[in-house]
């Protein structure tokens, strides 16, 4: 490997890891929004993955190749419990119950001290998630969504996003698609959480709450959800920007919040307004 790349990675290791993890989170947000739903639980799902992964590694010493899929499975179960009833109702119910999920988990992590280390969190998690793994998974995710987006399933998803009633009449199985999208997205978020806990070596209860949930939404809205790459680019911009513009640091969350306001009011298709080309 070139020496400058080594130096660069050494200096900016945390940032490079965060870019990849945030890219995965943006993908998971994309997955739900692609069927016209709004889940604000991506941060909570990420937290479940992070805690599951960290606890399995620390307490049971399971190998990482086993920890990773288990950390994707745990949030999927929670998504099933919440998505089951809410996805039959109008979209606000999913949004409300997922945002409430993040809030209740934060409090539970703090209170279940015997398991989660309480407010201090868990530390000393071995750094098993290397850079190549994170970016490989991100690449697989983008390519998979790209392929799905061009298939019949992608067409059904786009139809749902534009007009649910029409899509339903055309024979799209709405509940199955919505629940499927929510579960896949929670699994990606869980993976991202597990990867982040195994690259930061520390996790705490306040990292997966409201601020993170809104930040993940801002990734997707900045990029737009026309293609799976767009939200990833949104995540990269919003993660790197505070590092480049230091004065922005204090106002990072203010900025992320305002991005959402501006995107919804003025740029409904995001900064990257292209859409997937259909397969002929």
């Amino acid at each position: 490997m070139a020496e400058w790349l080594d130096d660069f990675l050494f200096t900016y290791e945390n940032l490079v890891h965060a870019l990849g993890v945030h890219g995965l989170l943006a993908l998971s947000m994309y997955c739900v929004m692609a069927v016209g739903q709004l889940s604000l639980g991506q941060a909570a799902f990420m937290g479940i993955g992070a805690y599951t992964g960290a606890l399995l590694t620390l307490n049971l010493g399971l190998p990482f190749w086993l920890v990773l899929p288990l950390s994707a499975l745990a949030p999927a179960l929670v998504a099933l419990v919440i998505g089951g009833p809410t996805l039959r109702l109008s979209g606000v119910y999913l949004a409300i119950s997922t945002i409430a999920l993040g809030e209740v988990l934060r409090v539970l992590y703090i209170n279940a001290e015997w398991l989660t280390g309480g407010a201090l969190g868990l530390s000393g998690i071995p750094r098993k998630a290397d850079l190549w793994l994170i970016y490989l998974l991100l690449l697989i995710g983008v390519v998979a969504f790209w392929a799905v987006g061009r298939s019949k399933i992608g067409r059904a998803m786009e139809a749902m996003r534009e007009d649910e009633a029409v899509a339903g009449v055309m024979g799209v199985n709405l509940p199955r698609y919505k629940l499927g999208a929510l579960i896949v997205s929670s699994m990606i978020a869980g993976l991202a959480g597990c990867l982040s806990s195994h690259s930061n070596s520390f996790i705490g209860p306040n990292e997966y709450g409201f601020e993170m949930a809104v930040t993940i939404l801002s990734f997707a809205l900045l990029g737009g959800i026309g293609t799976p790459v767009a939200p990833v680019i949104g995540a990269i911009i919003l993660t790197a920007l505070p590092e480049v513009l230091r004065p922005l640091q204090d106002f990072r969350l203010v900025f992320n919040g305002l991005i959402i306001v501006i995107a919804v009011l003025f740029l409904p298709r995001g900064v990257i307004p292209f859409r997937l080309r259909r397969a002929p």
Partner: peptide, 23 residues
């Protein structure tokens, strides 16, 4: 616009407001 657009706008705004207050 639908319920979800207004939910998202207020979500972004409230994070900005809390964070400003915290700063």
């Amino acid at each position: 616009a639908g319920e979800l657009s207004s939910l998202m706008v207020t979500l972004g705004a409230v994070l900005a407001l809390y964070s400003l207050m915290a700063v």
